[in-house]
C-alpha cells in the first residue's frame, strides 16, 4: 500500500492475516530469512512522502506518519532517555549507592542499545539523530528533591513510566507486526526499569495507581471467578498514552528546535 516494496508490511495483508492459518503464513514469510525481515524495516521510510524532516508545525519536529512515524517517535524517546542516563552516569548524584550506580549504568547501556538500533533501522525518513535535550529542570546532584526540580531518580521514573505508556499507546498505530513485536521487545524492558526505579524511591510502588489503573471509580465486579472481594478496583491495565499526550511531557525535556509533535495520530 504505502510501501509496495515491503514484503512483510502492508495493509493489504492485514484484515485476513490473523484469521487464515496465521502461523503457517507468517512462519513462511519469516522463515524465508532474517534478511527479509530486515528488508521490511529498511524500507520503512520509503513511503511516498518523506516529509518527516520538514516542519509543518511551527517550531515542532513532526515524527511523521504511518509505521515510520511511530518508529521515529520511539527513536526520539530513546534519544532522550539515553542522553539523560549518559549525563547521570557521567557524574553520580550525592550518596548514590554502589548498587544504584550499577543499575543506572545498566539502564544507560540499554537505552543506548535501543537508540542505536532505531538509528540504523530507520534508514529513510528518520528524524534528527541529534535532538537536543533540556534538562534544566533536573538536579543531577540529588537523588530525589522536594525543591521543585526533579532529582535523578524522580526524573528516571518519569522517563521510564512515560516510555512504557508511550509504547503501549502507540502499538495500535503500527501496521507491520514485525515492528509491533520489536516495540514489545523494548517496552517490557522499559517496564522492568520503571518498576525498579520506583522501588528505589518507594517500596512496593512498582504498579501504583498513577501508572496502572486501580481506580475506585472503576469497580471491578465483572462477574469473574474467583469473585472480587474487598476494595479491589480498577482494571489492572497500564495507563497507556497517545503520542500527543506523551510528547507534551517529553517536550518539557527537549530544547527549542528539538521539540516534537505527532500530528498524524489521533489524540
Amino acid at each position: 500500500m504505502h510501501n509496495p516494496n515491503n514484503l512483510l508490511a502492508g495493509p493489504a495483508d492485514e484484515p485476513g492475516r490473523g484469521l487464515t492459518s496465521p502461523l503457517a503464513r507468517r512462519s513462511f514469510l519469516r522463515y524465508s530469512g532474517a534478511g527479509l525481515a530486515i528488508g521490511g524495516l529498511w524500507l520503512a521510510g520509503c513511503s511516498k512522502d518523506d516529509d518527516t524532516d520538514v516542519n509543518p508545525n511551527g517550531n515542532f519536529i513532526d515524527v511523521g506518519k504511518d509505521d515510520t512515524g511511530i518508529l521515529n517517535y520511539a527513536y526520539a524517546l530513546e534519544q532522550l532517555e539515553a542522553a539523560f542516563y549518559t549525563q547521570v552516569v557521567g557524574s553520580f548524584y550525592t550518596g548514590a549507592t554502589a548498587t544504584e550506580q550499577a543499575i543506572l549504568k545498566d539502564i544507560k547501556d540499554h537505552e543506548i542499545s535501543h537508540r542505536e538500533f532505531f538509528k540504523r533501522a530507520i534508514t529513510s525518513g528518520r528524524i534528527s539523530d541529534s535532538l537536543q535535550p533540556d534538562f534544566s529542570n533536573i538536579d543531577f546532584t540529588q537523588r530525589t528533591t522536594t525543591s521543585g526540580k526533579l532529582g535523578v531518580l524522580q526524573a528516571a521514573m518519569a522517563f521510564e513510566d512515560l516510555g512504557v505508556a508511550a509504547y503501549n499507546g502507540a502499538g495500535r498505530f503500527i501496521t507491520n507486526n514485525d515492528y509491533l513485536t520489536l516495540a514489545g521487545k523494548i517496552v517490557s524492558v522499559e517496564a522492568r526499569h520503571a518498576a525498579l526505579i520506583r522501588e528505589l524511591i518507594k517500596t512496593n510502588s512498582f504498579v501504583a495507581n498513577d501508572v496502572v489503573n486501580l481506580d475506585t471509580s472503576t469497580p471491578n465486579n465483572l462477574g469473574g471467578s474467583p469473585a472480587v472481594t474487598g476494595n479491589l478496583n480498577g482494571t489492572g491495565l497500564e495507563r497507556s498514552k497517545r503520542p500527543a499526550a506523551v510528547l507534551t511531557t517529553a517536550n518539557t525535556f527537549l530544547a527549542a528546535g528539538s521539540k516534537l509533535s505527532a500530528t498524524q495520530y489521533p489524540a
Partner: peptide, 23 residues
C-alpha cells in the same frame, strides 16, 4: 490481536504485558 477491529483489545493486552514485566 493487531487487526483493524481489535485495536482496543491489542492495547489492553499491551497494557497487561507491561504490568507483568513490572511484576
Amino acid at each position: 490481536l493487531n487487526t483493524s477491529t481489535t485495536k482496543d483489545i491489542l492495547e489492553a493486552a499491551l497494557n497487561i504485558h507491561s504490568v507483568e514485566a513490572r511484576h
